[in-house]
Amino acid sequence: MLELEFMRLALAAGAIVGVLAPAVGFFLVQRRQSLIGDGIGHVAFAGVAAGILLDVSPVLTALVAAVLGGVAIEALRSRGGTAGDQALALVFYTGIAAGVVLVSSAGALDVGLFQYLFGSILTVTRGDLLLIAILGAIGLATIGLLYRALAGAIVDEEGARVAGVPIERLNVTVAVLAAVTVALSMRVVGILLVAALMVLPVIAAGRVAWSMRSTLLLSMAIGLGSALAGLTISYYADLPPGGTIVLVAAGSFAVLAAARPLRAPA
């Protein structure tokens, strides 16, 4: 398998996304915004359609649309007086409707579109991998630097706000990180399954973790393992890679849910 360059590129892209997606998803799950990745994914679909229509890189237009969608959800939630699920629904349905209209205008309801909807990790090029690596590194570095602030805001948002912590800026940072992750993960698991890779490893890790930090690290390990195992299984069993990766992540939840909680190392 490793002698094939497309598999090496796929495994490398899968590894980066497998680590990044749960790392960002950790903050969404803890803020009870597990479905925000789905909402942003639907806006990214509109971005892909716009890219196809304008003959620009769909990944780039999806990235821009996803960032705008993520920031819009956060703005509606925090300033517009809209409940979190309603803000998500507004952006979610607007995104999918815009995508349908744009795809229809471009006459692009074909295989080219499906690779974004369902993922096409086996067609990742060196150029794609470079983009995924750079943006992935920026995303992980941001989380590394701001982990304490982002985690602290989860613990007690109101208390942090009273003490003058810039909660709005931290929330926007999470929304932008989620948007970047969605745009990067499109090629790996597809828009329809991108949120799953952000959320399932975190939920699985929560079954056995003993602290916030251990939840984050375990979820990244599960995401990485799911991506590599899913790709390997899909190669030998001739299955679609995106769906297989997500099924492995779902399987990890089933296994860990049956396990006893781990204890902190002494």
Partner: peptide, 17 residues
Amino acid sequence: GGDAPATVREVVAAGRL
């Protein structure tokens, strides 16, 4: 605020933010 199993130390550390 979250569902993670935050420890006492992690909760208190948030107070230094």
